[in-house]
Simulated scan of single mutants.
Amino acid sequence: MTIEIGTLIAVSGLIISFLAYQFNRQKELKSDTREDGEIKAQLGYISKGVDDIRIELRASEKQIGALGERVTRVEESAKQAHKRIDNLEKEGN
Results as ranks from 00 to 15, higher is better:
L43C: 00
A66N: 13
R73Q: 11
T33L: 08
K40H: 03
Q26A: 06
G44R: 01
D51E: 14
V50S: 00
E76N: 11
D51A: 13
Q80F: 03
K90G: 00
E76I: 02
Q42I: 05
G37M: 01
R58T: 08
F18D: 05
Q80I: 05
G68E: 03
A66G: 05
K30L: 15
D32S: 09
I85H: 03
D36E: 11
E69W: 04
L14S: 09
E91M: 05
A78R: 07
V71G: 02
G92K: 14
I46H: 02
E56N: 08
I15S: 02
L14K: 11
E28N: 06
K79N: 06
A41F: 05
I5K: 15
S31W: 04
T33C: 02
D32V: 10
S47V: 02
K27S: 10
I55Y: 01
K48P: 02
I9A: 13
I16A: 15
D36S: 10
E56S: 09
K48T: 07
A66E: 15
L57Q: 10
Q80C: 00
S31E: 15
L57P: 00
S77T: 14
D52T: 04
R34E: 15
Q26G: 08
G44A: 03
E89H: 08
D51T: 08
D51M: 08
I55P: 02
L57V: 10
D32L: 15
I64V: 15
N93P: 03
I5V: 14
A78N: 13
R73G: 01
L57D: 07
I53F: 11
L88N: 07
T72S: 14
L88S: 06
N24M: 09
T7L: 14
Q80E: 10
A66I: 08
R84F: 06
A66H: 08
L88E: 10
E61P: 00
R58F: 05
I39V: 06
R70S: 15
S17T: 09
N87Y: 09
V71R: 05
I16G: 07
S47D: 13
M1R: 09
S60D: 11
K30R: 10
I85T: 06
H82L: 15
E75H: 03
D86Y: 05
I9V: 13
S31F: 07
V11G: 00
E91F: 05
K62V: 12
V11M: 04
N87H: 09
S12K: 11
E61M: 03
T2F: 12
Y21Q: 05
K79D: 11
H82Y: 11
S60R: 13
K40F: 05
I85F: 04
R70E: 15
E38Q: 12
K83R: 12
G13F: 02
Y21M: 07
G68P: 02
E38L: 15
A59P: 03
A41W: 00
E75Y: 00
